Amino acid sequence: MLKARKLLYPFSLLYDGITTLRNKFYDNGIFESQSFDLPVIAVGNLSVGGTGKSPMVEYLMHLLEEQYRVASLSRGYKRSSKGFLLLNGKESAAEVGDEPLQFKLKFPQALVAVDEKRAHGIKELLKLKTPPEVIILDDAFQHRKVKAGFYILLTSYSDLYCDDLVLPAGNLRESSTGAKRADVIVVTKCPIGLSPKEQETLKNKLQIKRGQPVFFSSIAYSKEIFGEAEPLPLKELQKRHFSLVTGIANPKPLLDHLQKEGLKFEHIAYPDHHNFSTSEIEQLQQKELILTTEKDFVRLKEYIPADKLFYLPIATHFIGDREKFEEAILSFVAQQK
């Protein structure tokens, strides 16, 4: 792996140069960024996948939905459709993307839309009879054609952007200096018992700019598994033979959690946002019981019997300073409105 990285490093320098120049063009107004007259919050990362963007978007939607008419806007990664679509929850994951469908099913009152052109998507949302009061852009840290009012940058505890290289030698979409654009940084997937001393060490390692807030969060797993059938206690799986099916960038935290719960299972891993083939579906239909992620559940629920398919919900859990994070979000939205 190290040898491969060395071979690819010259290409990383080229890619870094291109992305750095692009960012400078946006910073200096040579490339135009479009702003909008309502609060727009962008959630994203510097690396390719696996930092917990979906739980963060859901956290924000839950925080804001009682006071504001909230919309989430995604590009709908790997969807079969094109252009702007406003979800009603009856679409397939293949048509609109797994994460947008997940958002709509969990927040039926929210406006959930997909559009590969974010500026166009915002304009379409604002044309609605009851337009949103707040828009959350999913995976939009590098999407600079839209200038969001508030940027939340996520980086995983086990894969910090400061320890990585730019593509293709590493996994960064742009240089780690791009973190300076963030209004807040959240280190995700931290150990639950992360001490204040360790938090301070991580802040120093990230080389944050002066006054840039850094928060720490972990994954909170549900005690129950859910599906279209009755929910079951997770502990119930200690008595059952089951298969864990994942199509996510980094399944290791989930594997570790299930093993700590004393569960034994076979793990069937697929790439992130995997579109299941007919033969793969047929193989999965033979399994006695399947546990999967919420994202994969929306892809599989059309094909696997309801009594055999369950997912384990996860949520963002802040390790201290939760109130400060929420106050930063609520204060921004209130000021922008």
Rank of each mutant, 00 (worst) to 15 (best):
D139T: 13
K90A: 11
G193N: 13
L105W: 00
V134N: 03
L63V: 12
G149P: 09
S175E: 12
A169H: 08
S80G: 10
G178Y: 01
L64N: 09
G121C: 02
L111Q: 14
P191D: 14
E95V: 07
L167R: 02
S81I: 13
T130Y: 02
L125G: 01
P100W: 02
D115G: 01
Y151F: 13
P191W: 09
T155I: 10
A179D: 06
T130G: 06
Y59L: 15
E133H: 00
F84H: 15
L63Q: 08
A119K: 07
M61H: 12
K180T: 15
E58L: 09
S74R: 03
K147T: 08
E133I: 04
L160Q: 04
R144T: 09
S81A: 13
T188H: 02
L87N: 10
V57S: 13
S74E: 12
V57I: 15
I135D: 06
L160G: 06
L154W: 03
L86Q: 13
L60I: 05
L154T: 04
Q102R: 01
Y68I: 02
F84T: 14
Y59S: 15
V96G: 05
S156Y: 01
S175G: 14
E95H: 09
F107I: 07
L111M: 10
G76R: 00
Q142W: 06
L153Q: 06
H143F: 02
S72C: 02
S92C: 04
D183V: 15
V112C: 06
K90V: 06
I185L: 11
D163R: 04
G83S: 14
L125V: 00
K90G: 10
L137E: 11
L60M: 11
E133S: 05
E65K: 13
V70L: 13
S92L: 06
R75D: 09
L128V: 00
H143E: 11
A94H: 04
A110V: 11
I192E: 10
F84R: 15
Q109V: 13
L172R: 05
G193W: 01
E133L: 07
R118G: 08
C190T: 08
V57D: 10
K78T: 05
